[in-house]
Design a protein around this nucleic acid. Structure first.
Lengths: 185, 185
DNA sequence: GCCCGGTTGTTGATTTTTCAACAGAGGGCT
DNA sequence: AGCCCTCTGTTGAAAAATCAACAACCGGGC
């Protein structure tokens, strides 16, 4: 709607993420964030309840961006598309600074659960659109893939990306390949 | 005062200068400028009478920036300080795209006169603070140096900077040196 | 010719942002 | 303890940016 709200939100979020790479989250004041964003302190409170809400929304926003960037065609889920998988790992590689900070800081648990929520939704929708092996319970299958996927991503990031994205994709794909053979009737 | 006016002005000016390097000034519409600046069209008219006024203020702003960047200690004028001279040429080298566009476009005359005005003011102040040779008329001396300085700068820019800044500085300094010997009592 | 589309510059109502001020909480220092 | 300073979250009035609409203009195409 109004360009101002988008501009302010973005400026504040960008400022916050910039500060995240320099300072500790807890030692950050709303004043500093507002100043870095070149925005009045009151404006921050106009968009976010407090800095914790800001942190939450930042993470949610980032994950949404990851989803949009890495799975352009809606319905095609990363965990079952090799090209989408490739895009995902490459995206994380490019935005490594943000994600590694998020996973190392206190936000770890929140961030992880948000990633799971996002992936769960899109994966769940995908499994509805294909015929799953009748022996497999959907909820359990979803949880299995999400835990595996998010776990590998988290491991890769927190361990400073010891292998390039391409290797990660190949390895992950190999594992996926074996399971998929048994998934469909 | 209000951060909004600074932010809007800057966004519009930056957008304008970005477009200047792509399109012809005359074929530019206010709509395009506003869109590039991510600002409502009405906001442009809030700060600038029309796109010609915008052009004027852009040039004035750029020249002011050049002055601020190249002569940090006030009172020390570029034309009589080798380091300031060096800074000036290097600054122009770095911002070549803007200045060459400005000098090639219709704004040439306006731009040139604005540069002269700026240099005249600071040079005039400087000459007041030193004891000039009594035989030299101040106004004429000022005009002499300004014409020489701006002329050389303009020549250098419009000829696509055929020599690096360092060579220009050395050459210019040599000429200046000979004159200065006779300037002071 | 005439009409169509886009541009210009302006208007007024609405929304957002700014600013200054506020009270309250908390931390550090004497 | 008290004092000082800073941060927090909120308020209301003022300033600005936004949006939609306007009349007027221009240029190209039918």
């Amino acid at each position: 709607m109004d360009r101002r709200i988008q501009k302010s939100r973005q400026a504040i979020m960008n400022a916050f993420m910039r500060l995240m790479s320099e300072k500790d989250f807890e030692s950050m004041t709303v004043n500093q964030i507002a100043e870095e964003a070149n925005v009045n302190r009151g404006t921050v409170y106009l968009h976010f309840a407090d800095k914790y809400d800001l942190l939450d929304q930042c993470m949610e926003d980032q994950i949404n961006q990851l989803l949009r960037n890495c799975m352009p065609e809606e319905g095609v889920v990363h965990l079952t598309s090799k090209t989408a998988l490739q895009r995902t790992f490459e995206y994380l590689e490019q935005h490594a600074s943000f994600y590694s900070i998020m996973l190392k800081s206190k936000g770890n648990a929140v961030f992880r659960s948000q990633m799971e929520t996002m992936f769960r939704q899109s994966l769940s929708e995908h499994l509805d659109s294909i015929n799953l092996d009748r022996k497999l319970n959907k909820d359990i299958t979803v949880q299995f893939f999400i835990s595996a996927g998010v776990g590998v991503l988290e491991w890769w990031i927190t361990h400073s990306m010891p292998y390039p994205a391409s290797v990660m994709v190949e390895q992950y794909w190999n594992l996926l390949d074996r399971i998929q053979l048994q998934m469909f009737e």
